[in-house]
């Protein structure tokens, strides 16, 4: 074909690409640098450097409120990412390992709805709905937070799992069926092990998203259910000490570790 003869279109070689990329990365990551640096500030101040120390990390570790909020965040994120991953795995199988059917695109759009609808809309909707349930049942436990987090974590778990499934060779499953494996053993011995990296990546992404959520949590939480982000939000109007920087840096570190793991797990599929 005539087209093939032309110089291949490589986006990285477009004029201005490196500049634009550098500007974008700068805008994304630059604000984090002072945040992390000042978390090591020896002084009481978030803008006045007084030497290096770990005192704010110690202060955050000794702060019972921070500890309780961190535990709460981890519990909610663990449960929410667990349930979201199971549901997302089933959804991914249902949208890739079937013959094309009517309404498939609609289902795809519905699953990814939390990515499109503004978070504040979901938050207010959940506030109203859960308030009715809370009044009717008198139950104020963590289930509301976990259900809400599960719901908005599903697309984040779904996308990497689906990507993994789409990249997998379907002939392997066909071969298993040819060798008289029934659907369940095929799934357990062939499909599941192959899609496992996608599942882990999805679970971790869901975990990070749940860990970082502010808006929905703020509206859904009942008495005594402040998570780390909503606790931090409450501090902002008053005195801010580098303790907030220290907590943020730890959250950032957890997120970076998980995202790095996701990267390596999802890279395997092409290797």
């Amino acid at each position: 074909m005539a087209v093939a003869r032309q110089k291949p279109f490589v986006i990285r070689h477009m004029p201005g690409f490196p500049t634009l990329a550098i500007v974008c990365f700068f805008a994304l990551y630059m604000p984090l640098v002072p945040l992390v640096i000042y978390s090591f500030n020896a002084g009481n101040n978030i803008a006045l450097w007084e030497g290096i120390s770990f005192r704010w990390y110690v202060a955050a570790w000794d702060n019972e409120l921070v500890k309780a909020a961190a535990v709460r965040s981890l519990v909610v994120a663990s449960f929410a990412s667990f349930f979201a991953t199971i549901l997302a795995t089933m959804a991914a199988l249902g949208t890739t390992r079937t013959r094309a059917y009517r309404g498939q695109t609609t289902i795809y759009a519905l699953i990814n709805q939390p990515l499109m609808v503004p978070e504040i809309v979901t938050a207010v909707a959940l506030l109203i709905l859960f308030a009715m349930i809370k009044e009717a049942t008198g139950y104020h436990g963590y289930a509301y937070l976990i259900i809400a987090h599960t719901a908005f974590c599903i697309p984040f778990a779904y996308l990497p799992i689906r990507a993994r499934l789409e990249g997998m060779d379907k002939t392997l499953e066909t071969a298993a069926a040819d060798l008289y494996a029934r659907p369940w053993p095929t799934f357990r011995r062939v499909t599941l092990p192959l899609m496992l990296p996608g599942i882990f990546a999805g679970a971790m992404l869901a975990f990070v998203i749940s860990l970082d959520d502010v808006v929905i949590t703020e509206f859904v939480k009942s008495a005594g259910q402040d998570t780390l982000p909503t606790y931090m939000l409450g501090q902002l109007r008053r005195v801010i000490t580098p303790e907030i920087n220290a907590i943020s840096s730890v959250l950032l570190l957890i997120s970076v570790i998980l995202v790095t793991l996701i990267f390596f797990l999802s890279r395997n599929k092409t290797a």
């Binding site: 506030l127 009715m132 509206f219 008495a223 005594g224 259910q225 902002l236």
Partner: peptide, 21 residues
């Protein structure tokens, strides 16, 4: 048990909705 809010509007919205505990 102490729970935080960050604006009069948030507090009012949550209490208006009811079932807040």
């Amino acid at each position: 048990t102490i729970t935080d809010y960050d604006s009069n509007e948030t507090a009012l919205a949550k209490v208006r909705a009811g079932g807040h505990g």
